[in-house]
Design a protein around this nucleic acid. Structure first.
Lengths: 245, 245
DNA sequence: GATCGAAGGACGGAAGACCAAACCTTTTCT
DNA sequence: AGAAAAGGTTTGGTCTTCCGTCCTTCGATC
């Protein structure tokens, strides 16, 4: 039903070609970018953002636009600003509670998982091909941190994100890093409200370790295999809890 | 160098978070969408587009904005319009010659290949998991068409795209279909000016066939393996011709 | 303690993108 | 002849974004 058969010579009208063109404004995109970075812990609580005048040039937008975004983030409690010399904009320390996943998020959970699959598999293969010793050492450190966080899901999840984003960085593709952060943001919204007993987290981290060792040996095949298993874990849990996608 | 080691507990400032936020306008996005669909042959030469008044609602934009895009595409010779009842906007039959790849395209060729790797691997795995008999039959047909086009690279490339997009459709993820069309558009720009002797095309299509058979058997591992080889073909050629990425 | 400099905060106008709703012109079908 | 369906045109308004300027705060330095 998804893909009807069609003659090889002629062309059937595809669907995505005429799908709605979603034109996010610079303001929305900025709120999104910084917001997920904060949600994912990529911007640590208490850490300082670059000065507005610098940040707006880095983001390629006007300062007033950036300010709109920062105002929104400050009103939602994600950042706060102090004035005067030595002041600046900082990530709030007690982060506001994540809002519950929207109906739309939930209805698209399978698409999200599919997207994650593509990104993570690409990362696994490329990391196996390119990851250097320092990058691997860094990943090992994160794996250690993960083992120390089995009792605290929030902490575990943050380190988990750091590991996956770290893998994307080790893969050496900025596009993959960006896609990874986006996809992890979406996954976080889905996972947040699911119970994760320590045993599950422990076995998940064991997969991390196997993944890292496969990457160290440059064994792309094994890396993809381990990664696939790793992802199926979450997917099965979601499939059991959410309406069929 | 790409990813420096950092302590597991603290957070280093990531880079992509502050990367320029690219806010494409609706006009640009529309030209892009329709333009690549035409370039890729997803919209066949001579075929008719939906009426403006319908298309603009489907795309979720105003008619004036859509008209800007259509005007641009007509001026570049990709479409033409006829007035009056029974008229409409049609894809031009002799498509204008593709413009040579920009310097930026060439400098980012490795990123493009990385992105393609992720998309195609995801497609391979999910297609192996979900592809139905009809979808597979359609793919076989395209493979036949490919064998008939070994002497004509333009025709081969069009069928090649149809096959890869068809795989994405068989994978059942609209996101993957969209990503696939984008990535194939970028690849086309890169490949257009490279000689492809019939022997190369024949062996490439042999890989297609092995891929399809792996998918039919639901053998995700073999599918990813074949796909990886398939992609490495192009990548090696590009690596030999283009500056190191 | 006065001053300087660096940070956030606020305003106002100009430009551009987008939208909405008309209306005009051409062509074909009934 | 007229209705209908398509592209072509015009107008005016709204919203976003940009740019520049100025204000306010406050730590650091002299």
């Amino acid at each position: 039903m998804a893909a009807e058969r069609r003659a090889a010579g002629t062309l059937a009208p595809p669907e995505v070609v005429f799908a709605p063109v979603r034109s996010q404004t610079a303001f929305e995109e900025t709120v999104d970018r910084l917001g997920t970075a904060i949600k994912l812990g990529l911007l640590a609580p208490g850490s300082q953002l670059p000065a507005e005048r610098e940040l707006c040039t880095r983001l390629g937008i006007a300062r007033s636009t950036l300010r709109q975004a920062l105002t929104a983030l400050s009103q939602s409690g994600h950042v706060f600003a102090t004035r005067g010399r030595g002041g600046g904009t900082f990530v709030a320390d007690p982060q506001p509670p994540a809002d519950p996943p929207s109906a739309q998020m939930l209805s698209e959970w399978r698409e999200t998982c599919d997207r994650r699959l593509a990104v993570e598999l690409g990362v696994a293969v490329l990391a196996a091909e390119r990851a250097g010793p320092e990058a691997l050492a860094g990943l090992e450190d994160v794996a250690v941190a993960l083992d120390d966080s089995l009792e605290d899901f929030t902490a575990y999840r943050q380190a988990d994100i750091r590991l996956h984003v770290g893998l994307a960085e080790a893969a050496g593709s900025t596009w993959l890093v960006q896609a990874m952060t986006e996809v992890q943001g979406a996954m976080t919204d889905l996972i947040a409200y699911i119970a994760h007993p320590p045993e599950v987290l422990a076995s998940s981290n064991a997969q991390h370790r196997r993944l890292i060792s496969a990457i160290r040996e440059g064994d792309a095949m094994r890396a993809t295999q381990v990664m696939t298993e790793h992802l199926q874990g979450t997917e099965h849990v979601l499939a059991g809890l959410l309406p069929r996608g």
